[in-house]
Amino acid sequence: MASTDVKTPDHPVTQVVAPTSRWKTIVGNQQFILLVVWIAMIIGFSLKAPIFFSSGVAGNILLDWAPLVLIALGELIVVISAGIDLSVGATVGFSGVIGAFAMKALTSGGTGTVPTLVVGVLVCVLVGSAVGLINASLINYARLVPFIATLVTLGAASGLSLVLTKGAPIMSGPADAITLVIPWIGPFSKPVIVVVLITGVIWAFLHKARFGRYTYAIGSNAFAARAAGINVKRHITKVYVLSGFLAGLAGFFFYLRLNGGAPTSGLGMELDAIAAVVIGGAALAGGVGRVSGTVLGALILTTVTSGLIIIGVDPQWKRVVVAALIAIAATLQAFRKSEGGAS
């Protein structure tokens, strides 16, 4: 069996052609349901507060969506490989803080905005990738399960951020960097457009390239993947480094947005990322999940946040809404699985 034969087992019902099943196919398509839910939310919030349907609110939502979708996409790839990455939230804060130190030093040395930001983004993604590499090493060589390995780096990264900053945000970088997050085309700021492009690249990686096929194969059955000739350890390393890389980028995004790096940034954000991934239809058991689902999952989460603030409901309710969405998404997943098993 060639390793490239492994299919994404995400649409088990697509080959069913009976007319009664076509409706089932549409309803069973998680992305379609998510789209409907998202549009319904927009209509609901707009009816309650017309200002919700505005470019301003769209800009706010996108500003929240961009860093979340970055780490959620990393999490998606890890989850498809049947792993979990709990360290992404802490990595966002840690990379942002280290990047902020670098940018502060450059700025005080008289370096201009553009070279400072270039160095800053490189430092952030390097720190993020390094955390990913440590995760992969702990999993591959110290034989820790991903949950424990990434729990270790979560603790170390968040602790180090606090120790290094003594709790205070690190600012005093290029003062005009924050102007980058001002909407540029419609509600889209330049960094958000970059994130949209990155999302496209990840989509191609996961759904059109060998990288994706290997990831699905390992997540579906690591033993079979190994037998098929895939270097599982090397691929797992790539998966966690990519997740760390994306978390580092999210850290840089927060830096731009907040004009500084804060040790508490990203705190607990791994749970938002996992929520986006699960709502988007991925299975924590591995082998299942799509970029479009995660993108919509993240969009729904950030729309709920802005929506609740705009209609004047305590944003703490977001947790309850998210909990309900996760329950529904997981139930749909379970139904589809049992249906797939029956057919």
Partner: peptide
């Protein structure tokens, strides 16, 4: 919840 990005969103 002590997170500046959440304060920023608010």
């Amino acid at each position: 919840q002590s997170k500046p990005e959440v304060a920023n969103t608010n």
